[in-house]
Nucleic acid binder design. Structure first.
Lengths: 252, 252
DNA sequence: TTCAAAAACTGGTCAGACCAGTGCTCACCG
DNA sequence: CGGTGAGCACTGGTCTGACCAGTTTTTGAA
């Protein structure tokens, strides 16, 4: 067994057993190296391993800290490993949308099923605002409308996951959504989809709401895909390899 | 962002996206360092991080390999169940399962649609292992089977989200299968569900695969709900201090 | 007393060296 | 001819010491 791994296990056990509390600071790399009688490189490798397991977090200039084991904030949140899957690969965007299609559908389904009076009131309010407002500036309202529905699903996990996915999307394609609406024809379709979704949820028709919500996401997704194509950028097919990483492969 | 982390994410994406198959060899540390224009230390840290996440395995003198999450070659010392030491809020557990039902269904759908020959091989291998093994000891195999399917969806976002959800579940209760299987009639049902799922995916029947996968998660979910009702608070592990590691703590 | 510069931390990266397993090659010996 | 073992060329594992880059503390001059 490699020393670096022995050390990572030792530290992990110490942390998980409660010897070190969450948020607590771990001794500096140089200190650990001295005390354990190994080089700093070994310590760094061990810490990276723990980092990979989500046991610790490391901050440049500050130190390493025991990660809070509550999965709420850091697990799927903004600092999620998912974020780093991007690297500007448009492929990931559509992977995201693919997942969102499913989850938005489920959210709509559950919302139609579980929405309370208060939920319906919120959804209605968001929908009215969306309809009455200048379509050129309604990105936020659009978000609010969908969020109201998701929250009406009364499933915190779903809310959280969808929120994370949406945040990640906004970081990459902020402009895209905005560019979608101005095209009159598309705007009308989207408005109609929203209305259908709204009515299905309020009317308490789960299956219908799900179908409409999924169609909505898929429509947006395909519109974006078309836009990408028109822009000259080619979208990679699902299973196609990423040639840019070819040099990472081992030779045969 | 640290370079070592960028590299680990880059490699991870390549692997999860199907660019590198399980058991496949990764270029040597020295090669990676040269090709990516960084020092070997950075490469080693990145690899350790991936190792921590279980994405790769490293063998002294041989090289690093994409981990086979599928049973077969990972005969090395079974990692003892890590934490699982929480007393969960059952509510969150079922919220999680609700979302998982949807996503596992989607994964199965996409897998049936997109699985390559290699994917089918891996899935088959995992399925065979699952069928041929002592049902009392197959939590890992069950996980491997489902994971093989999820990965065949070729959607890294889906892989990550489902993995996160599963990790969260582990914080609440131990793997469901371990608790469910001992009941003979349930075991048989689960086995049949697995077989149906397997056949649908291999046969390339997306809709069918999705339906079966969702039914499977729902079944497990309901079984757990019943168990809860029967008053079974699940696993709890003793917490043991390790005084021998006192010198690893930072001074107050 | 105030506050900005400097010092003293922290982690991040680099270079080159050497040790330790693994596996291939090829010349030597029976 | 057929082993077979020593050597060599790989692989990862560790060490050293240097320097860069953020963060916090100390310090000294205005």
């Amino acid at each position: 067994m490699a020393i670096s791994q022995e050390i990572s296990y030792r530290l992990e056990r110490l942390i998980l057993d409660g010897g070190l509390a969450p948020e607590q600071k771990i001794p500096s790399e140089r200190q650990l190296a001295t005390r354990l009688g190994v080089s700093r490189a070994v310590i760094r490798e061990a810490l990276h391993e723990l980092q990979g397991r989500g046991v610790i977090e490391t901050r440049h200039g500050k130190g390493s800290f025991v990660a809070s084991m509550v999965p709420g904030a850091s697990e799927l949140g903004e600092q999620s490993p998912l974020m780093h899957l991007f690297e500007g690969h448009p492929r990931t965007l559509f992977d995201l949308l693919e997942v969102r299609e499913q989850l938005e559908g489920q959210a709509a389904y559950l919302a139609a099923l579980r929405a309370t009076r208060l939920d319906r009131h919120r959804i209605t309010k968001a929908f009215r605002a969306l309809e009455d407002t200048d379509p050129l500036r309604n990105a936020r309202l659009d978000h609010g409308f969908h969020l109201a529905i998701v929250e009406a699903s009364h499933n915190p996990v779903l809310v959280h996951v969808l929120n994370s996915l949406k945040n990640m999307m906004l970081l990459t394609v902020q402009a895209s959504v905005a560019n979608l609406n101005p095209r009159e024809e598309m705007r009308k379709k989207i408005v109609r989809q929203h209305r259908q979704l709204y009515e299905a949820v309020i009317a308490g028709k789960p299956a219908n709401a799900q179908k409409v919500a999924m169609a909505h996401v898929r429509f947006v997704s395909e519109a974006m895909r078309d836009m990408e194509k028109d822009g000259g950028k080619l979208i990679r097919l699902p299973i196609e390899q990423d040639k840019a990483n070819d040099h990472l492969r081992a030779e045969a």
